[in-house]
Design a protein around this nucleic acid. Sequence first.
DNA 1: TGATAACCGAGACGGTACGTCTTGTCTTGTT
DNA 2: AACAAGACAAGACGTACCGTCTCGGTTATCA
Lengths: 204, 204, 204, 204
Amino acid sequence: MDAPTNGPRERRAPNPQRRSERAHRAILDATAELVGEVGYAKLTMEAIAARAKVGKQTIYRWWPSKAAVVLDVFERRTGTPGDPLPDTGDLAADLRTVLYATVDEFTDPETDRVARAFTAEIQHDPDLAATVTERLTRPNNEAFRERLRAARDAGQLDPDIGLDLALELLTGPITQRWLTRTAPLTHAYVDELLAAALRALGPR
Amino acid sequence: MDAPTNGPRERRAPNPQRRSERAHRAILDATAELVGEVGYAKLTMEAIAARAKVGKQTIYRWWPSKAAVVLDVFERRTGTPGDPLPDTGDLAADLRTVLYATVDEFTDPETDRVARAFTAEIQHDPDLAATVTERLTRPNNEAFRERLRAARDAGQLDPDIGLDLALELLTGPITQRWLTRTAPLTHAYVDELLAAALRALGPR
Amino acid sequence: MDAPTNGPRERRAPNPQRRSERAHRAILDATAELVGEVGYAKLTMEAIAARAKVGKQTIYRWWPSKAAVVLDVFERRTGTPGDPLPDTGDLAADLRTVLYATVDEFTDPETDRVARAFTAEIQHDPDLAATVTERLTRPNNEAFRERLRAARDAGQLDPDIGLDLALELLTGPITQRWLTRTAPLTHAYVDELLAAALRALGPR
Amino acid sequence: MDAPTNGPRERRAPNPQRRSERAHRAILDATAELVGEVGYAKLTMEAIAARAKVGKQTIYRWWPSKAAVVLDVFERRTGTPGDPLPDTGDLAADLRTVLYATVDEFTDPETDRVARAFTAEIQHDPDLAATVTERLTRPNNEAFRERLRAARDAGQLDPDIGLDLALELLTGPITQRWLTRTAPLTHAYVDELLAAALRALGPR
DNA sequence: TGATAACCGAGACGGTACGTCTTGTCTTGTT
DNA sequence: AACAAGACAAGACGTACCGTCTCGGTTATCA
């Protein structure tokens, strides 16, 4: 796990206007390549700097940690989080669409790899945890809750059930299965889960 | 995160008969203390050896990694996993008992700390992942499934629902909430979850 | 003797222009102190680094081995080797001056200590042997031979005797006595040696 | 050079009567092989024990150090030191015989290797130095001096010249040339040396 | 002729130092 | 001022040996 980190020193902010676009891109590209080649754990700042033909300081100037760099890479790859869920009026179908996509993402080796790296990193880097929550988790959850809210307003959900719990009933099992690798994440599993969860959530 | 690990060299197994009980205990004690003092990430083999008055080789002789040592400490603390769940005949009550205990554990700062460390470590140490699964996750899950099986046999559960899914519906939400720290883990939350999940699982 | 040395890994040369003068001096100072305190054999890179407040890597960056560091210390102490011998026209007197100085040096505990260390080290470190020969032995011998050459040209030596042999007759006995510690190195011994050797070397 | 040696603890002497001849021989054989294979510096007690199929304690029981073991190996190889020099009445011829043999020995790679190892080791192991002096140097020197004494008594040497100096004039140059590797040790060199030295030593 | 002590093989132990690695900062030109 | 390059202090890594210390398992005297 962590090489005992000294924590980066506080320093006065650099001027983003003068930031070298070349260096910025080179760092993200190099990081993306290296994560693919050696995985997150063996990724080093040293290696990123070398591959990107960049001084280490240039990395430290713009990112507080290795994780922050990789987070940017990750974000660049997966595109804008927080996109609204589809709303065709058919809740089950819409959720199926989204959850299929979710398990597909987790099944992609590259995404899986980085997601696991973040899951790991978040456990002992509160700053990163906050950032990830802010930029990934919260927008996604909000979009999810929005769709559920619409369903509830349409009378498709039990109004006594909290949206957060609803969300967790639908995604928690997937998260847990992915986390513990107890069984494969398949579309069939999503179907099964969806059926059960909707029984829990539907109007009495 | 991880100092890029070279992985321990292959070596022929030492003779466990000749293992020094004194050293064994001293290492676990020292590790337990140090995890409490500096946390898992800043824990070093060097420090364990120093605190335990033990040669580093003695640690490396018996454990392949820092994580493995801490796992033993963790196991020693939490006692035997895989204990059967209570079975009073009242499924809801029994599950409540267990899930209360679960959230209590995750709420305990010490346990939380180590659990997070393992969650992190497991993401990029497949050997450790296998060990943890084998020694913690699987026994616990099996005990859980056993109780659910009994309930199903008693007609308290929908026989069409897989026990794995049932398990995940009951624990996945808790795991996810703990993992993402989106909201506190309380007994009230367990109650809410239990009510919803049992609607999903109960006989039609 | 040597802890079985793996030999330092090959690495691309650092840029001497950017060498830290502070670190350089601190390392040599610390080494000088430590050799005096604990002797060469118990001198460790670890201790040098600690005393000099320097990272170990900084030592390894500039010197291939402990011996190389001490050689620099030694050289700094004894000043420029290869200084020409005095030439007053009186060969015996000039040689006496030089050999007195030689035995005085070998009698000084500090110099003796380091000289023995090198004598030892040279036996199984060919690189160091070459360096020492190049930087100490050869210049000194050349200066010596130069003085003998002048004497030979002045008709004070048998022209049939090789200068190398002449050199060895004059210094070999001293070296051997120092090496085997069979008897003390005194000025009287030099006188005795000189008388005999000059009989061997003088014109017939 | 030496890994800083803790020095062996004082222990009460074992009973040589009960010494295992098998182990004794195996240790010497293994040491001889290993010195040949890896050289003295990289020779380890560990390796000797392993090769000899012997417990390390068995080595430490009978020898105080690696050097002591190798010394025994060396002695076993070179046979009894201190044999008297030939005395045919012709001093020059007798010395030539002996010095030829000496340079031949030093020229043999195996002997050269071990001799250098001891030369090195002696510099910082006073106990070993004493042992070597006692068992090798002194007997050999004594035999040498004996022959010179006979020559002096026969009027072939200047009676004013000390026997020690005479010895050193004859052997010091060879020792020095071997030690510094400044030039090859040949029979021709011995001839040249002998001619010169005898001029120094002969009666006036 | 046991018993009983010593030596033996094996190898775990507490240590020390090794030489390497990476971290995050600092320094030195260049652009 | 940001940059590429890379030296620097710090300190953990995992390994190699050190010399000591058990641990059974043979011998080989002596009671």
